[in-house]
Amino acid sequence: MTAEIIVVTSGKGGVGKTTTSASLATGLAMAGKKVAVIDFDVGLRNLDLIMGCERRVVYDFINVVHGEATLKQSLIKDKRHDNLYVLAASQTRDKDALTQEGVEKVLDGLSEDGFDYVVCDSPAGIEKGAHLAMYFADHAVVVVNPEVSSVRDSDRILGLLASKTRRAERGEGAITQHLLLTRYNPARVAIGEMLSVKDVEEILGISVVGVIPESENVLTASNNGIPVIVDVNSMAGQAYSDTVARILGEERPLRFIDVPKKGFLQRVFGG
């Protein structure tokens, strides 16, 4: 049994890749899957903070690649979910520390250890780290904001996913592409200040797997080191749960994409 490899990527930075990786991995674990989430951003370790395990990092991804530590020693078990593990990025400044053979070795090791899913949190850009994060993937989650530069970059990434992966090179069939629209603000869309779900889908020629509304809960979650999907009362958390369910093959309608209707009392008294 080989692990399904999912890359979370975007091209542009700051659109919500790490937030998405953390919630996707946690959501898959909540669905009973054995999951590892790997930070590919060599030099800039971030995922450990979002997952709330930054003080428990002893060995990292590069240590495993170089044989300085075993996978078992380096995988950090999540506090809340027994079947969820984090592999932190190295803080080395050596950009060549990551190699294709090394990444393959780690992914094969995770498959042998019985992992169902490996989530690869890609760095921004289209350099080596981003390339290696997507190379072995079976599925891709392309995170996009309703904003011109992010949309353009994600089109570029969709092109790379179709050609620069092992599956593409070996002719093993295209990798499954999922478009995830984050930081969506239905109120601004309604007054024509923001690209709509439909606009983004039409421009990129691919339908969304989920829409995450812009929400203060995302910052609160990262402040606390708890993936936002754990916050089941927040709209962002619920939108991530829907997204994970869809990636697992369930059909769920999109939520939180329209301006909430005001109730009678709110209309009379405002607020």
Partner: peptide, 21 residues
């Protein structure tokens, strides 16, 4: 509306970049 401007600009640039990809 600025969203319309954004959509039209993106349509053109994305089509252009795809053709040279």
């Amino acid at each position: 509306p600025t969203a319309t401007v954004a959509r039209e600009r993106l349509r053109i640039i994305v089509a252009q970049e795809r053709s040279t990809r």
